[in-house]
Design a binder for these strands. Structure first.
Lengths: 199, 199
DNA sequence: TTCATTTTGTACATATATGGACAAAACCAG
DNA sequence: CTGGTTTTGTCCATATATGTACAAAATGAA
């Protein structure tokens, strides 16, 4: 039907994701990414539209692989707390195993772009607020499940949990030991009364 | 003795600090900052040496005004926990009052530069780890003071507290209400058993 | 009023970066 | 093998960005 593309689009998005994760949004310019992908800027614009558009595609690609993806998949009738604990444990492991200690791409992007990029700033702010809202929903379920006391303040705990997530991911850029990260995560979870070993 | 400078150096550093805080390190290029300060790049290099050097000067200028500066000034014989609580409350207030919701300049810089900037990355990582060590020291004092139980795990709590600090500052870029931020901070502090109203 | 000092302004060479315009190329269906 | 479609490659004009080099300017001290 038409001239074939030199590149595999999904693969390119995935490579862009890795680049943005490593170097941030500003450093992965259209010129730089085009050269990295082995295409011209002309093809870049044709395939992805803009740097912002490719960033959003890369974000989706990242989100699917990110440890906190499990939050989106929890069924309302399964135990919540063990999954949250496992998620934190997973974060500690993957952040420590990352040789370049890149932390979380979304948290990095939020720090870089919120307040300075007109389109992506608000987009990322929304993302985080929705993540917090999702946590609050899950904690509410956990209260109904009897996993948490009935008088638990789900709103406050969800926000504190979200802050812990952001903090743990940021901290992982400076603190590279999985054991130390897990000490951090465990203390946060236990403090909030949300720690639960998996069976 | 010599030709006078067009600018006040301290003032320039302070203005650079504001610019970096707003736009990040990459966006405050030598060219951009020179123009903002009304000097030539030639003068910039002469006065500050390099972008990295000006960044470090700006960081010092920022640190002196930052809410967590109180941590450096605590005497070992005064109550620790109320000061930590006040610090968190102050963070919530100043982050919410900042019309541009820039969060914490150091946390932003850590997210932007750790892992990608050869000199400033490790510099910022050190900064955060030393902040965590300072917190651990203060919690140790608090145990000796009797403010905390003798069996308190100062190391774990200090790390969790540091993560909360990082997370709260990052969250403040998306969550702009002082009340909501304070709910977050209070839940974190109470969870860690570190909440203490001031007298 | 000369001299030493430091800052300033201009120039240079080079690299990065943007986004659109337009022709040529490569494919497939009919 | 022709025609429709989409991608590619090249060109354009312009802006940003770096770091150094060197002469000119502005000061205070001797």
């Amino acid at each position: 039907m038409a001239r074939p593309s030199k590149i595999d689009k999904d693969l390119a998005v995935s490579e862009a994701m890795q680049a943005i994760w490593s170097d941030g949004y500003a450093a992965t310019s259209v010129k730089a990414m085009s050269e990295r992908l082995g295409i011209t800027r002309s093809s870049y614009y044709n395939a992805f539209g803009s740097q912002e558009a490719l960033f959003k595609a890369a974000l989706t690609s990242y989100a699917a692989l990110s440890p906190d993806h499990v939050l989106a998949e929890i069924d309302d009738d399964e135990p919540i707390l063990p999954l949250i604990t496992v998620m934190f444990k997973t974060i500690c492991r993957v952040r420590a195993e990352d040789r370049h200690h890149r932390g979380c791409m979304i948290v990095n992007a939020l720090a870089e772009l919120a307040g300075s990029h007109d389109e992506l700033g608000p987009f990322l702010e929304d993302w985080i607020l929705q993540s917090a809202a999702r946590l609050e929903h899950l904690l509410t379920i956990a209260i109904q499940n009897g996993e948490l006391p009935a008088d638990t303040d789900a709103h406050a705990k969800a926000l504190a949990l979200q802050a812990s997530l952001l903090g743990l991911n940021t901290l992982s850029k400076a603190l590279h030991s999985e054991a130390e990260l897990w000490i951090t995560a465990k203390a946060s979870l236990k403090g909030l009364g949300l720690f639960a070993e998996a069976n």
